[in-house]
Design a protein around this nucleic acid. Structure first.
Lengths: 185, 185
DNA sequence: TTGCGATGGAACGGAACCGTATCGTCCTTA
DNA sequence: TAAGGACGATACGGTTCCGTTCCATCGCAA
């Protein structure tokens, strides 16, 4: 029976290595060393480095999908952005997400797993936020959902992962204002 | 005297390898093989893989800075987005930019070079677009420049590199409308 | 023609990596 | 108490990589 604490040590070390080195430079030896674990313990759980990565990443990505429902468009947007900020400001997440996003544009099992297990469900989930606003009459029926979703996620992601400078006080409120204004334009 | 055609073949192969494998998996042997060149020809030009990468990437990144000046805010935004779309739809650029953006969040010479040679100049250049609009009176004096810049770049970047689905007809026009609306909110 | 220098190709040492195998040790369960 | 299995550690073969070195060839200038 595989021991849970060893599995967790491996998972923790895996994400730390992923943040430090990126998926391209990730090595099983380094994960084992960092976890204080023999390599056999890793290969007893997954039969290759790629399978380990796909399984560990998919698990946390799926668990992280959570959509607010405050009853108003502005409240939902504010809450969605606050969740996104909290996630992307985690030091490990901030380094891992852009790396995996780049990896998703390449060929391979990890790319397919990321698209089907992370990107598509997350985008469908976020679309619910807009559909609810349309049902409430806060947005017109012919709202361009896809375009609005780009405005919901794009600016904050760009700010936190590309520009990578701290958010000034009140940033999230002003971001919410402009995002809602863009939805209505 | 180093031959220019060899240098160009190396540069071309470097960017193709970078797109296919990412910076983490990039190997000098593969670049030389792809360029039809001996490894010695590479090390005669740069004394390490990292120096080659920094030099080649910095060169094209600096050359690619170009800001439109159409005389109106909406025209400038439309033109800026059209430029960005053209760049990010190039198949190599679409794979390389997200990879380097992830790399910029890590420690190392390449990260520093990317920040100082690419990110900062590009953001300063884009800020001019907004300052001109303020000077024309199209935007209020107290416009939050930083926040607006996130709206200028974020949605399209997110769409083209994270979502990675084709842009429907008229997307850029509607994107421009919503972007300007966000600026004014 | 002679000579210089860049070239492609090949090989090298040393290091890292993957996936497997083999230890002796420890913990759990029967 | 005895048996089984997961454990950390270590080493292995085979591959890949970096950076260096050597070689024969080719182009070009004197």
């Amino acid at each position: 029976m595989l021991q849970d604490d060893v599995t967790e040590a491996i998972a923790g070390a895996f994400f730390e290595e992923l943040a430090d080195n990126g998926y391209g430079r990730l090595s099983v030896d380094a994960v084992a060393r960092r976890a204080g674990v023999g390599k056999a313990a890793i290969y007893r759980r997954w039969n290759s480095k790629d399978r380990m990565a796909v399984e560990l990443i998919s698990a946390v990505a799926i668990a992280a999908i959570d959509l607010p429902d405050t009853g108003s468009l502005r409240g939902d947007v504010r809450e969605y952005l606050a969740n996104a900020r909290a996630a992307l400001q985690h030091p490990l997440v901030a380094k891992i997400v852009p790396d995996l996003l780049a990896e998703a544009n390449r060929a391979g099992d990890l790319a397919e797993a990321l698209l089907s297990a992370v990107r598509d469900p997350r985008r469908a989930k976020a679309a619910e936020l807009l559909h609810r606003a349309i049902a409430r009459g806060e947005l017109p029926d012919d709202t361009d959902i896809d375009l609005c979703l780009d405005f919901l996620a794009g600016p904050l992601y760009w700010r936190l992962t590309a520009i990578h400078t701290p958010l000034p006080a009140g940033y999230l409120d002003r971001l919410t204002d402009k995002t809602v204004a863009a939805f209505l334009a």
